[in-house]
Design a protein around this nucleic acid. Sequence first.
DNA 1: TCTGGGGTCCTAGGACCC
DNA 2: TCTGGGGTCCTAGGACCC
Length: 432
Amino acid sequence: MSLAAYALVDCNNFYCSCERVFRPDLVGKPIIVLSNNDGCIISRSNEAKALGVQMAAPYFKQKRFLERNNVTVFSSNYPLYGDLSERVMNVLRTFCPDMEIYSIDEAFLRLDGFSAYNLTEYAQRIRNTVFRWTGIPVSIGIAPTKTLAKIASHICKKAPESSGVFNMNDFWHSPENIDALLEKVPVQDIWGIGRRSAAKLANYGITTARQLRDRDNAWLQKKLTVTGLYTGLELRGISSIALEEAPPVRRSIRSSRSFGEPVTEKKDAQEAAVAYTVRAAEKLRREGLLASTISVFIKTNAHRPGDQHAEYCAHTLDSPTDYTPLLVHHASEMLLRIFRAGHKYQKVGVLLSGLESKRNQQGSLMDITSPETQEQAQTEARLMQVTDAINKKFGRGTVQYAGEGLRQPWKMKQNNLSPKYTTDWKELCEVE
DNA sequence: TCTGGGGTCCTAGGACCC
DNA sequence: TCTGGGGTCCTAGGACCC
């Protein structure tokens, strides 16, 4: 039987690469992309990495250094990244229909059926095509399991001579090569092993992927739960984490942001809670879902130990809904309940959970409710449809809820935003 | 002055039931 | 009144991911 073959296609420094597609003048130069609120650094070009710029470093601490070194800085522009991601995924699908979109910049492909091809060459073709059609450079790791494919893609990024593809299957049948390779992988670089588990494993003298692989199943399960057991099996080449081709059913929708400035006024925190509820409810309807529970949380800045307050409040509705005014009403009320004057708040968030499909619900609703209730439900649904349609056509916030406020002093910072080149007619790229 | 946002899964423990 | 096993469901907290 031939070896299973999973490929992980991973976009290189994805957000930076997206910015460069529209700014070719920045190719070969150091650039970075910041998190929301211009808080910390979440993507670095190779040139920025070479300067020693650290991932997740707070921007304000690096600002001087970045200026001195002529690093170009971008606020994150998610509509742009989402659009380019979709284009990359569409190209990949033409090469392999057995595909799992794992994140905005990664996809797993199941390449078993392509044994007639030389897989390394096939991956090379995928890589070249993605770059030609979208401008995004990718790395591809191939191995008998998803966990090993992740490792293969890391290896490939670190080794320039791999020319963007690393195929572990090519020498799977020489165990000493695989041993040598896994020996060089630190345990915390393995998919599914985070900081806490790595620290725990270090206490048992386990610091490399090879050492983890060689522990027995019972030990792995005892120390790291079943997820750790699966990781161990996958490191041995036994596929235990399946390809998920259909996106999993969503369980929750969250909307939360750090404030641009610390918030001390109840009214401002309440506006933010309302605004986030409006956004979460839009997403709910876009995906044809209803929520049965809404929660609101508020917190102060964890980096300011002198002023700490964090609280959370949940409300379960009589029946699941996607009606914004009702959700806004509950969110607003809960916020007032958890807000305490005298604190400098950093963040408010809204979580919708207990989600179910609207389609399943409608039938049963019709059976048991009165004509008046049905009519009201239809009026509400139409109102939501109309506001969604207007906001889609003319831009978010064209129709706004009064509770969201107008001045919005709590709004996040985005001082280095690039234009919406691909998703907004007003900001299309101009060609001269 | 300034430190992201949005998700999932697993386990333990409590409440409740037969 | 006391005793017991076994099952389900829910929630909070921890850990992980990109």
